[in-house]
């Protein structure tokens, strides 16, 4: 957390997370939750695991945070092997789990202090630090209320504060915005950006929202059925689907300018249908003015122009053969059901 400290530390030459052929099977090998997954996370980046229900995101996090023993493969977190030094791994990382784990019968403040105690932090430090973190997630006014009176968003923010109590250099966030409303989601995004930018933390997050992965992550791993199918920056993933699409409508139907437009260096592909050109280009913003200039130089008039960027939706579709959105409704209803079930039980 300490800003000065992390900038003065020598950069690790090794990646902060190193995962090699990691697998986890359940029920005596019948369920392969995570299957032969390998990836690396560099210090200081936001790394996202993007995948649908049951893809193996939580299982991977549980293995990296030493809650689950891998069935095979190897993983190193913050320089510690998850088999040999689980306690050191736990000491160095923060975890914000998918589910609410705070004790409902205690206050927010007591919860965060208890967390600090479990890390073995001295009270002289955990008291001011706990208060700071509650202020960070804007819970200072609710700090002395029982968690059972908190809303879902407040609970999620409390989980975030608890995950930060031990000054982690690496924070695991499992679906940090699941089931949150617009404002809370925006707040969580803000915190995530702040942790990366101001406090130079490395974040490993999972999500099944493409928009979220796109907005927050430096690199994304698309995971499906326990396999990592693709790793890359959002831009790379989108680019691998194809470039930007520029749609230009010209008043004069003739002459056909397709071959001329195709001469422009950035342009990949041109299709003309009755005066409307569909142009695929690498950097759409730069290619579009050049296309307009070309059309005008021929004495013709552009009536309409549109630039569309490829979305991660398309990338996701391309790599998994499925659209993520189909599963979302299901997913949300399942989540709310789970919450209701818990409420009923307590």
């Amino acid at each position: 957390m300490a800003q000065q400290e992390s900038s003065s530390l020598p950069r690790l030459s090794k990646p902060i997370i190193f995962v090699d052929k990691l697998s986890k099977t359940f029920s005596d090998g019948k369920i392969k939750a995570v299957d032969d997954v390998s990836f690396e996370v560099k210090e200081g980046e936001v790394f996202g695991f993007l995948g649908p229900n049951g893809a193996g995101k939580t299982t991977t996090i549980n293995m990296l945070t030493t809650l689950l023993k891998p069935s095979s493969g190897n993983a190193e977190v913050c320089g510690y092997n998850v088999y040999k030094h689980p306690t050191e791994v736990r000491r160095s990382v923060g975890v914000v789990p998918q589910e609410y784990t705070a004790d409902e019968e205690m206050t927010g403040y007591d919860n965060i202090i208890l967390c600090a105690d479990l890390y073995g932090m001295p009270r002289s430090d955990s008291k001011p630090h706990g208060e700071e973190l509650l202020r960070l997630v804007e819970l200072q006014d609710a700090a002395n209320r029982k968690v059972s009176t908190y809303s879902g968003g407040m609970r999620r923010r409390l989980e975030l504060a608890c995950g930060l109590i031990n000054y982690p250099t690496l924070l695991f966030l499992d679906e940090p915005t699941l089931g949150l409303d617009v404002q809370t989601r925006a707040a969580v995004w803000k915190y995530i950006r702040m942790l990366k930018d101001e406090y130079h933390m490395t974040l490993f997050m999972t999500t099944h929202y493409l928009e979220e992965a796109d907005a927050l992550c430096d690199r994304i791993a698309i995971i499906d059925h326990g396999h990592v199918v693709k790793i890359g920056s959002p831009e790379e993933l989108k680019a691998s689907v194809g470039g930007d699409v520029i749609t230009v409508t010209v008043r004069e139907a003739t002459p056909d300018l397709s071959t001329d437009i195709a001469q422009i260096p950035l342009v990949r592909d041109v299709k003309n249908t009755a005066g409307t050109y569909r142009v695929k280009a690498e950097q759409g913003e730069e290619a579009a003015p050049e296309i307009m200039d070309l059309i005008r130089s021929k004495g013709m008039h552009v009536t309409k122009i549109a630039l569309t960027k490829p979305t991660l939706d398309e990338a996701y579709l391309e790599f998994t053969g499925r659209q993520l959105r189909e599963e979302e409704t299901d997913r949300m209803s399942m989540f709310s059901q789970r919450v209701t079930m818990r409420r009923a039980r307590s």
């Binding site: 809650l67 975890v95 609410y100 004790d103 409902e104 967390c115 073995g120 818990r342 039980r345």
Partner: peptide, 14 residues
């Protein structure tokens, strides 16, 4: 275990 607190405790070095 049910309410997740056990998992939280187990993710710390306690």
């Amino acid at each position: 275990r049910r309410f997740g607190f056990l998992n939280k405790a187990l993710s710390t070095p306690v």
